[in-house]
Design a binder for these strands. Structure first.
Lengths: 140, 140
DNA sequence: ATTGCTGCAAACTCTTTGCAAGTTC
DNA sequence: GAACTTGCAAAGAGTTTGCAGCAAT
């Protein structure tokens, strides 16, 4: 994700372009693997040592509110963040706290079809994600 | 859930039967709707005023470790607990933090069939849950 | 110039821990 | 009586808040 795209993303959402915000966005996109708050803070401290932690929390909140990023959480895990992109699901390791994206267009189709026929009473569906729990057979 | 079943559940899991544990189990089953820690604590304080908060946390941890209850979490929400029962999915309100169970045997079949044919590389599936996000059209 | 953002440090909330005293089997 | 469980209070982690000063448009 290059600088121009990051700047466009901020502008499009009515946010001022600041070094702190570009750093946070870049961090999340660079790390990819659902970084938690601590990892984001560490990453940014490496590149911009004098960004305040409180500021990072505020920026993450802002991004979530604008829909620029998503929060992902499981069980005893900390908060993690996810660059918003295409519809994808999550694989959760039941032994470690590893999370991976899982893309499956065929599955999306099946689920979309299913819910276009069958409605849930008194509920208006906006988004469906699968949480697939299990074990990774190989390490990262 | 009556007292005998609660006692059996504890014994079966090698746990000693104490008033605190039966109170926590009863609380979760009575409240049903995915109570969070605070609600559980309040409930128990009402019935057994001198149970320590630390004890409740320890009991919840123990129950989760034994698989007697599950943890459920979303986004900025606190930890919530769920009596382990049949396979069910969750409806999450995108506006409030309401969570409801969603049972759909037909859907379970479709997903089970799908993954019995298609494997996820290097991943051994144990459990699949849908997180269905949207809006409730009526209040509770 | 105006509005919005950041840094800082203090405060908060939720959760965990250690250990002595008390319970359960 | 042995092993386990609880209460308590203190500490810890992660997150939020308020506000003065600074930066972006």
């Amino acid at each position: 994700m290059d600088g121009q795209i990051i700047r466009d993303t901020l502008t499009k959402n009515g946010l001022k372009i600041t070094p702190q915000r570009t750093a946070v966005l870049k961090a999340i996109h660079t790390m990819g693997n659902h970084p938690d708050t601590e990892q984001i803070i560490e990453f940014i401290k490496g590149h911009h040592p004098n960004v305040a932690i409180g500021t990072i929390y505020k920026i993450l909140d802002t991004f979530v509110a604008k829909g620029i990023i998503n929060m992902v959480k499981t069980d005893r895990d900390k908060m993690r963040y996810d660059a918003v992109s295409d519809l994808h699901h999550h694989l959760y390791c039941s032994e470690t706290s590893r999370i991976e994206d899982y893309y499956d267009e065929e599955l999306n189709q099946i689920i979309t079809n299913y819910f276009s026929e069958k409605e849930i009473p008194d509920f208006d569906i906006e988004d469906i994600k699968l949480q697939i729990k299990g074990k990774f057979l190989k390490n990262e």
